[in-house]
């Protein structure tokens, strides 16, 4: 097993352990387990970062092209977001959703193979790197908004229904979840928008076919639409503003994932979508 793969598997194991510890924390209200979960998550992020560095050293390029490397980068960004929320934002319970998502993405990346795609290297300049990194940051933002939205809806249900169980105790307050979801969207949207503009400019320069039917364009526009819809749902000061925003974030995330799966399934083999 080469170094990249070894480190990737170690990161995956750390993520799985962190997710398990958070699950036990939810069930048992154990005092020290969330801190242990955060430590595991930090270990996973470190190992994951090292794995991607090893990839770069091994292949002489950043892990931005090909399904395995791209998903791995996205997984790292999601895990990093969860770690920052746990340490700086003191909202570690969001890891209940984010860490399994990161682990699942890393696992799919591992199965897909951590190899660069056989595409022309000529296009992989700084603008391309920026385009992909910004897009990944945008998708990571959407994932955080999804996690916050899902937890908001669950906590809302507990509070409305007077169920004072594990979710009530362990999940952050509604206002905190609303704020995190809104900020994740507000940060993610410009990242994604700039990324799409860069992608368009980049494709123009190299004469790529980026017509309306191109899966990349379709997926990007759908994602952008989800961002706009989720932010629009939070606009104003209506009675259910936050609840509506959380719902749109959750449904929107599901739409983005479903769109990716459908587009990839409909695409002819080897077309290189992600």
């Amino acid at each position: 097993m080469e170094l990249t793969q070894t480190l990737h598997v170690v990161a995956l194991a750390f993520y799985a352990l962190a997710a398990a510890l958070l699950g036990v924390s939810l069930a048992r209200s154990a005092r020290r387990l969330p801190a242990a979960a955060t430590a595991c998550l930090a270990g996973g992020v470190a190992a994951h970062g090292a794995a991607l560095a090893a990839f770069t050293a091994r292949y002489g390029e950043l892990p931005l092209v090909g399904l395995g490397p791209s998903l791995s980068v996205l997984a790292l960004l999601v895990a990093l977001g969860s770690l920052l929320l746990a340490t700086l934002g003191r909202t570690g319970p969001l890891g209940l959703v984010l860490v399994p998502v990161a682990a699942a993405l890393a696992a799919v990346a591992e199965v897909a193979g951590m190899r660069p795609a056989a595409q022309e290297m000529a296009f992989r300049g700084p603008w391309f790197v920026l385009h992909v990194v910004l897009a990944m940051a945008g998708y990571a933002g959407l994932t955080v908004a999804f996690a916050a939205g899902l937890m908001y809806l669950l906590q809302f249900r507990q509070l409305k229904g007077k169920r004072f169980g594990a979710v009530f105790r362990f999940f952050p307050p509604l206002d905190t979840l609303d704020r995190i979801g809104r900020r994740a969207l507000m940060v993610g949207l410009p990242f994604l928008a700039v990324s799409l503009l860069l992608g368009w400019a980049w494709s123009e320069r190299f004469g790529f076919d980026m017509q309306a039917g191109n899966p990349k364009v379709v997926w990007g526009v759908i994602t952008l639409g989800v961002f706009v819809a989720a932010l629009a749902a939070r606009a104003g000061q209506g009675a259910a503003r936050a609840w509506r925003g959380a719902l749109v974030s959750v449904v929107g995330f599901a739409v983005v994932v479903a769109a990716y799966v459908l587009l990839r399934a409909a695409e002819s083999a080897g077309a290189g979508f992600l």
């Binding site: 906590q155 509070l159 009530f168 952050p172 307050p173 509604l174 206002d175 905190t176 704020r179």
Partner: peptide, 8 residues
């Protein structure tokens, strides 16, 4: 505690 679960 309940109020804080709503408002932070």
């Amino acid at each position: 505690h309940l109020a804080k679960k709503i408002f932070g």
